[in-house]
Simulated scan of single mutants.
Amino acid sequence: MNIQIELDGRRLDLARMHEISLPIDFSMTKERAWYIGPPRREPVRLGDWVGSTREGGSVNFYNLFINPHAHGTHIETASHINHTYSISPVVNPLFLKAYLFTAAADNSGALDLLTLWPALPYDVQAIVIRTLPNSPDKVHTCYSNTNPSFLTADDAKRLANSGIFILLIDLPSVDPERDNGALAAHHSFWEHQLPHSPKPALIGEFLYIPDALPDGPYALHIQHPAMYTDAVPARVFLIPYI
């Protein structure tokens, strides 16, 4: 089988597609952020019957207890901050024009995007922000009570005004860990979407982008379950061009 996909005349190198998402792992002993503990998987118990082959049951039949924001890569709609918005995170189109950019924080903790703006393609639809430092240990980091870096509301606005409607970052949040509930970058990004941008605009958090992937343009593909809530787990892929 030979499948070829083009995005605006550029062929996608599917053989070098890279997953940049962090799975929800039920062997985790702590959350990745937000102080709530690890995800849980518990067998259903109905009288004497148990949904666990390990415990003698005929089949594995589990209840899952997860929080998309705390336990792995997720995407969220504006319903994360306002119940009147759509709660269906539909990614459209299937492949998006994305740009990968690496940023470090300044002394305030805000990410420095100064060199992004002259490099950003005019027709980009999604931005993927890799933050420094970027050790492989990042995939196991628990960010609770660490005050990681963040985006400013002005930069979130500028991203939205650039036509970007998918904002992805490798941190627990685009906003500071503690900001008294302001979530200024979330609000700014969603409030400044261009009228013609596809809806809903999405924010994705908790990625990991290896250093081997250079900054620059990629195609982006996002998979997620059919769930109606403010945030859902997601698989995210960067695809180089040929």
Rank of each mutant, 00 (worst) to 15 (best):
G163M: 05
G163I: 05
I164K: 04
I164R: 00
F165T: 08
I166S: 04
I166N: 02
L167M: 14
L167S: 11
L167K: 10
L168R: 04
L168H: 05
I169T: 11
I169R: 03
I169M: 11
D170I: 05
L171F: 01
P172V: 02
P172E: 07
S173H: 07
S173M: 02
V174N: 04
V174A: 05
D175C: 11
D175S: 09
D175H: 03
D175A: 05
E177Y: 01
E177S: 03
E177G: 06
R178D: 12
R178L: 03
D179R: 06
D179Q: 12
N180G: 11
G181Q: 11
G181V: 07
A182Y: 01
A182D: 12
A184S: 14
A184M: 01
A184D: 06
A184I: 00
H187I: 10
S188C: 08
S188R: 09
F189P: 06
F189Q: 07
F189K: 07
W190S: 01
Q193Y: 02
L194K: 14
H196L: 06
H196R: 14
H196F: 14
H196V: 12
S197W: 01
P198F: 04
P198N: 08
K199W: 03
K199H: 12
P200E: 09
P200S: 14
A201C: 12
A201W: 02
A201R: 05
E205R: 14
L207A: 11
L207E: 07
Y208T: 10
I209A: 03
P210E: 02
D211S: 15
D211N: 14
D211H: 12
